[in-house]
Design a protein around this nucleic acid. Structure first.
Lengths: 337, 337
DNA sequence: ATGAAAGCGCTAACAA
DNA sequence: TTGTTAGCGCTTTCAT
């Protein structure tokens, strides 16, 4: 009953030629006669012959496959990164194995092992939030498997990487608020153990001080989720802390803040202008729509993949590269005038 | 310079034993002496030995890998499906190769070929919107590779499948509106060439007629996007078509409608109650938050994977199964009272 | 123009 | 307790 995929042997047997002849005929080798080629190709089609990629990978010691380690696929940003990776890889005839670390270190280590066991030709990764030990990365390097970081990097670990200029983007976002006359601009900041959180805060601070405004900590809140934003806003309203602008570390936070402000009769953008940092497609659909930094996940994925493929195919070694994509501000209703 | 992954041979050579001894020692075979095992395992650890999964797959004629064909990863629903798939597969020690069809037939066919070439043990797929020819699916079947459809199925193509009861969900969603006293309930319907579009519309119609309301076509609109919803609402307002409820085929459409209605001073939910069909995390963040059907993408992914793994490991054949997940309505502000 | 043989890394039946 | 050998599917060098 079981009728597994046809192999070169099957074709050879049927045609009473040797496997090597079939192999050559299939790749249009000049030595093989027209007649044989015709017969082989015809039968191959008829038998739905599909070369066994595993055998080829084993033979050539390369799998035409790259591995991706992603923290959590259910974030729009990361899924669009994957989309960019997939498209570039597909065009190059490269397969992609995707592993989720779910932001856990142990999973990440297991992912690395899986990918290496499967002989991937290269790895794209964004480190998990938990990762603080780099032995698994050294391990990748020992095995001479090219590694490209995207989005989240490890300062000091030298390898190709493509990142967003979080500092600059945050600076531009905040500057947009100061430029439009806001004077009391709050920042809802992300975790300060993540580079991203620190850089966005630093960008905010630079714009604030450039505008000659005070950067006292009383307008900076550790608030990075929809729910926390709700609570922080309540607190701000209670204490009657005056604000006329807000730059939030991500869109959900910005939207949570906006919703709570609106509920309390605060007008957006008249009373408070709000800028987020894009998590995805949320910014366009809120009311008012949200001014936000677009992170270009797709471009990040495609750029990282191009770097990796270049590294894989390159004969000679060359220094690690860092590609910085600039994220641009998209002004929408929440900060207009 | 190039120091590839250590192999069993390397270990054998170093220890002056045969590769088979190493192989057995590594899998704790009872025949091997404690001493040898110890030495082998120690050296293996030191050399960072990682079994070559390709070689093992080739040997055993099974790859411990399943393939997933997904229309577009950047939809929250699909990415949460993948998350469910990944988790179950990970727990079973199975790898996952993900391919995007990007809703294109030719890509889908290429994906199938790639997966078969890579000797996947099974395939999970949601057919693309373009797919109308099933030869590639027959091809999967010929090769005896188990196939499970999730979410989107092909009526008449018999295989394991897990779907959502769109009809029932739409019925419940609409019934919620009639139960709360709405009398003029519009439906913004999806493409009627997709089963999903037809079923959601049919569910709507059942609830409407059960409530003794008219199901005239004047309240059904082919409107399935944020932008189209905006235009359709403008049209409704212009023509002064009276509505006090709306069931939309997806959340984005519902949100587009809500935003435009609010802009024109229509109160939600007082004047018009709105129910969507979940695309993801949008429903919770709008203002008012949106009542919506939760599609449970994660559960769909994990259920489909369980079905597939069961099929793969099963010795004997059994009839194709259809698992219907019920999507449940989550009532939020847009339809309260 | 075609075939035989070896080998990629691993395992397992069979020998010793 | 360990080694030898053959084979998974494919390619390629070296014969013929």
């Amino acid at each position: 009953m079981k009728r597994p995929l046809a192999t070169i042997k099957d074709i050879a047997r049927e045609l009473k030629v040797s496997p090597s002849t079939v192999s050559r005929a299939l790749k249009d080798h000049p030595d093989i006669s027209k007649e044989t080629k015709r017969a082989v190709n015809e039968l191959a089609r008829k038998m739905n012959y599909q070369p066994n990629a595993l055998a080829i990978s084993l033979k050539y010691q390369k799998s035409n496959t790259i591995g991706v380690i992603i923290p959590e696929i259910v974030h729009y940003f990361f899924s669009s990164v994957i989309s960019g990776i997939e498209d570039v890889a597909y065009d190059a005839g490269i397969n992609v194995i995707i592993c989720q670390s779910n932001e856990r270190y142990d999973r990440e280590v297991a992912n690395v092992k899986t990918l290496l066991a499967n002989q991937v030709d290269g790895i794209l990764m964004s480190v998990s939030k938990e990762t603080e030990d780099f032995r698994h990365l050294e391990y990748i390097r020992q095995n001479q498997v090219p590694l490209v970081f995207y989005d989240r990097i490890i300062p000091g670990f030298v390898t190709d990487q493509v990142i967003i200029d979080d500092f600059e983007a945050a600076y531009q976002a905040t500057k947009h608020l100061t430029d439009t006359g806001r004077k009391k601009i709050a920042h809802f900041a992300g975790p300060q153990n993540l580079l991203l959180g620190r850089q966005r805060k630093a960008g905010y601070q630079k714009a604030i001080s450039e505008a000659g405004l005070t950067t006292g900590d009383e307008l900076i809140f550790n608030t990075d989720s929809f729910e926390k934003a709700h609570l922080t806003i309540l607190d701000i309203l209670n204490k009657k802390t005056e604000i006329d602008g807000l730059f939030a570390v991500n869109d959900l936070t910005a939207i949570g803040a906006m919703k709570t402000l609106l509920k309390h009769g605060v007008k957006i953008p008249q009373d408070v202008a709000i800028v987020g940092f894009s998590d995805g497609r949320l910014s366009g659909i809120t009311d008012p729509s949200l001014t936000s930094v677009d992170q270009h996940g797709y471009e990040m994925g495609s750029a990282a993949t191009e770097m990796l493929l270049r590294r894989i195919t390159s004969q000679k070694d060359y220094p690690a590269e860092t590609r910085i994509l600039n994220a641009n501000l998209i002004v929408r209703e929440s900060s207009e005038i």
